[in-house]
Amino acid sequence: MRSHHVSRVIAASPVSVYEFARDVENLPRWAAGLAQSEVVRDGDALIVESPMGRVRVRFVERNTLGVLDHDVTLPSGTVVTNPVRVLAHPEGAEVIFTVRQIELDDAEFARDIEMVVADLARLEREVVAQA
């Protein structure tokens, strides 16, 4: 299994980036690689339509460390843990997302990386626009 780290610097405070990204109602606005429709709550999990089909998502508890890790249960039943961090950066905040090659061939892995790059660009636009 390979991993690839995608990062993006956003000209906003780490707290504002974290809070926007943490709000599940905002997921369809920026995380098209995960949520392509409204988010349905199922207890402490979220059910979303994704490019992979219907998936179940569980985020770590709200925290002050900027950790947005989340487990995605794929239609196959495989659980993928996605490490995500929002860190302080001299120009605002840096978001680092680790993409893992689980159940993906090399072309699908490259596509997933590009989707995360696009998602973080949308996150930046959304956060900066609301500031």
Rank of each mutant, 00 (worst) to 15 (best):
D119Y: 05
A12L: 10
R85W: 07
S3I: 00
N63R: 01
T78N: 06
Y18L: 09
N26C: 11
V17C: 09
P75D: 03
D112T: 05
R2D: 13
R2M: 13
V80N: 00
N26D: 02
F97E: 05
Y18F: 15
F97R: 04
V48M: 11
V55Y: 11
A129P: 05
R54E: 15
T64K: 04
G33L: 14
D42Y: 00
R85P: 06
Q36T: 13
G53W: 10
V9C: 05
A32W: 14
G33C: 11
A32R: 15
W30V: 11
A45K: 09
R56P: 02
P28E: 07
A110G: 09
D112R: 11
F20M: 10
V67I: 10
L34K: 06
H4V: 09
G66R: 02
V9K: 03
P90Y: 07
R58C: 09
Q130T: 12
V95E: 01
S76E: 11
A35P: 08
A45R: 10
R85S: 14
V15W: 14
A31Y: 14
G43Q: 06
L120A: 04
V9D: 04
F109T: 04
I10A: 10
R122L: 14
T78V: 15
V116Y: 06
V9T: 14
E25A: 15
P90Q: 02
L123N: 04
M115D: 11
G66M: 01
W30P: 07
L27N: 03
H70Q: 06
I113F: 10
S50D: 07
S3C: 03
L34N: 04
I47N: 00
T81W: 01
V24I: 12
V67A: 08
R125K: 10
N26F: 05
V86E: 07
V55P: 02
Q130A: 15
S7G: 07
T73N: 01
A118F: 05
D119C: 09
S50Q: 08
A32S: 14
R58M: 13
E108F: 04
S3M: 04
V95M: 07
V48G: 09
E114I: 01
S50M: 09
Q36R: 15
V127I: 06
A121M: 05
A31H: 09
V60Y: 01
G66K: 02
I10L: 11
G77V: 10
V116P: 03
V40I: 14
E38A: 15
E103F: 09
L34W: 09
D71M: 08
S76H: 05
A88E: 13
A12I: 08
A121E: 15
V117I: 12
N26P: 01
V80R: 01
H4P: 00
S16E: 11
D71V: 07
A107C: 09
F97P: 00
H70Y: 13
D42F: 03
G66C: 03
P83K: 06
D23C: 11
D106R: 12
V60H: 06
N63L: 04
A32H: 14
P14L: 04
V79D: 01
V67W: 00
H4S: 11
A11M: 01
V6N: 01
E114M: 07
E49N: 13
V40R: 12
R22P: 07
R54Y: 00
V40D: 02
W30C: 09
E25R: 15
V80Q: 00
L34G: 07
V57D: 03
L87D: 08
V72K: 03
E124S: 13
V48D: 08
R22D: 05
P83T: 02
T64Y: 06
